[in-house]
């Protein structure tokens, strides 16, 4: 039996993530000011980056869905929005766990945190809309429009730490991080990207399958 292409990517992602997490936990050095708590960086930051990448895929799918009305584009919206929300929830939970020992609070309504929470709520809104609209064509166009609009907030969320005063620090770069930490961060980011590609691809197939069944219900077998 031949495996679908995404399984190779998913398997590679799983292995890389296990290795990258282990390296982040046990091999990477503790951070000078945060100590071991700094290791949360290696799961929190990849979640943020890949979450935004997957939302970008949803945006592209939504534009394509509006322009072409192809079922494949709509299935891409359905799958990438769901995976984006998954990573968004993970991002918020990890951020909260990171914030308590470092900032001293679980949460505060600073611009970055507020924008991230809005980002989660708006895409959950797209999912709820999809669940409520039964008509396939309406569901496709409505969720495409709302996805495009919800996407406005992604650049805002990314730039929020630069546009406004915030508790959250601005983005780190290779010049603000020790090389061994930066490399571990990238390893974990690539790993999560691969795992997320597997998520989107698998979820896409389920979405296509369901849509096909709606269009052409399976024949009932006569008794």
């Amino acid at each position: 039996m031949k495996l679908a292409w995404e399984h190779y990517i998913g398997l590679a992602g799983l292995v890389l993530m296990a290795a990258g997490n282990a390296i982040g936990l046990f091999w990477a050095p503790p951070e000078m000011m945060m100590g071991d708590v700094g290791r949360i960086l290696y799961v929190h930051v990849p979640a943020a980056w890949i979450c935004m990448v997957i939302y970008l895929v949803a945006f592209a799918g939504a534009v394509a869905s509006l322009a072409t009305a192809r079922p494949g584009a709509d299935a891409l919206v359905e799958s990438s929005v769901e995976v984006g929300v998954l990573l968004n929830v993970l991002l918020l939970v990890l951020g909260s766990i990171f914030a308590k020992p470092t900032w001293g609070v679980w949460w505060d309504w600073d611009p970055r945190l507020t924008a991230s929470a809005i980002m989660c709520l708006t895409f959950v809104g797209v999912m709820v809309l999809r669940a409520m609209v039964d008509d396939v064509e309406r569901r496709a166009s409505w969720s495409a429009v709302t996805t495009v609009l919800a996407f406005v907030n992604i650049p805002v969320t990314y730039m929020s730490v630069r546009w406004w005063r915030s508790l959250h620090q601005v983005q780190s770069s290779s010049s603000t991080m020790s090389a061994e930490m930066w490399n571990v961060l990238w390893l974990n980011t690539v790993a999560l990207l691969l795992v997320s590609i597997w998520f989107v691809a698998r979820r896409y197939r389920i979405a296509r399958d369901r849509a096909d069944q709606l269009r052409a219900p399976p024949l009932e077998v006569a008794p």
Partner: peptide
């Protein structure tokens, strides 16, 4: 609340 910079140093 403590603000941390974007620096991570080993």
């Amino acid at each position: 609340m403590v603000k941390h910079s974007n620096e991570y140093r080993a």
